[in-house]
Simulated scan of single mutants.
Amino acid sequence: MPQKIIDLSARVDAAAWEANPVEHRVLSPAEGARHMADGMREHYGVDFDPSVLPDGELLSLDTLTLTTHTGTHVDAPSHYGTRADYGVPRHIDQMPLEWFLGPGVLLDVSDEPVGAVGADRLAERFERIGHAPGPGEIVLVRTGADALAGTPAYFTDFTGLSGAAVDLLLDLGVRVIGIDAFSLDAPFGHMIAEFRRTGDRGVLWPAHFAGRRREYCQIENLAHLDELPAPTGFTVSCLPVKIAGAGAGWTRAVALLDG
């Protein structure tokens, strides 16, 4: 049966504001032709005149400098620390692909203020949609923060999940949790203010540090979750790029709906 595809991925754009700027260098097709000719001569001793090609052009070549946490990406357990209660945390290239293709569940918390959504609020969402996530399902948290992508506010004005909210999802058997914000945790400023107010270290990156106790993956910087027509009834594909020894990998996350 034909499927409709909804793109849930953010654009990687060197022109947009990023906390860790992206560098995008482009060799034009003409420059690519000369680059290829130089490489053939240097490495293989083959002389070739690129002027014989149509318009003197061959292929363009893009080189990007960016972190694995730029754009829509999947965090591996090794991103959360070097040690874990369950053993040595796995890198992104070691994670089973089966984790990243499965039924999706959309939880809309876009009416929540800047900070962290608690477990009780998630339980209310389960009741509202008439479905509690289970093993093999991929939970997508819609905050609406993707509307701020490309601006400094994207990194400061969003809603994350509390440690208890993450534990609730993991208790239900969920292994992949995604969000359309910069982080699954609350913004830096919010967490640090809470730490200074309470002295409780547990308020610092609790969603990430849950991955030191229990193996799971996050998808961060999702987009267009508002285009999903219903909280359930779709499949999520978020296969991460296979980068050896990396704590994260980019993904072209999509939702698949039956036509």
Rank of each mutant, 00 (worst) to 15 (best):
E127A: 06
P113G: 10
E124S: 04
F126H: 06
G115I: 05
P103S: 09
V88N: 13
L107N: 10
R125A: 00
G81M: 06
A84P: 06
A76P: 11
S110K: 08
S78V: 12
R128D: 15
A76W: 02
D85R: 13
E112I: 13
G115M: 01
F100W: 07
D75S: 14
H91Q: 11
I129P: 00
Y86N: 06
I92H: 08
Q94A: 04
R83C: 07
L107S: 02
A123Q: 04
P77A: 14
G87F: 07
G102E: 01
G87A: 00
R83T: 15
H79T: 13
G102A: 04
A116H: 01
E127T: 13
G102Y: 00
G118D: 04
P96C: 06
G115S: 07
P113F: 07
I92D: 00
P77S: 09
V117Q: 00
D108T: 03
R83I: 09
P77V: 05
G115N: 02
E112A: 15
V105I: 12
R121E: 01
D93G: 10
L122S: 05
D111M: 08
P103I: 07
I129E: 00
F100E: 04
D85C: 12
F126K: 08
P113N: 00
L107E: 03
A119V: 14
V105Y: 05
D75H: 14
P96N: 02
D120K: 11
A76H: 08
D85G: 13
R83E: 13
D120N: 14
V105C: 10
E112V: 13
A116N: 07
R128A: 12
I92K: 09
P113H: 03
L101S: 14
P77I: 02
H79V: 11
D75F: 04
F126V: 03
V117K: 01
V88C: 09
L106Q: 06
G104Y: 04
F100R: 01
P103G: 15
P77F: 08
T82R: 14
S78Q: 11
R128E: 10
V109T: 04
P96H: 01
G87V: 10
V88K: 07
A76F: 05
Y86L: 00
D120E: 14
H79A: 13
D93S: 15
L101P: 02
E127W: 12
A84G: 12
V117T: 02
Q94P: 00
A84Q: 07
S110W: 03
D111Q: 01
G81T: 05
W99T: 04
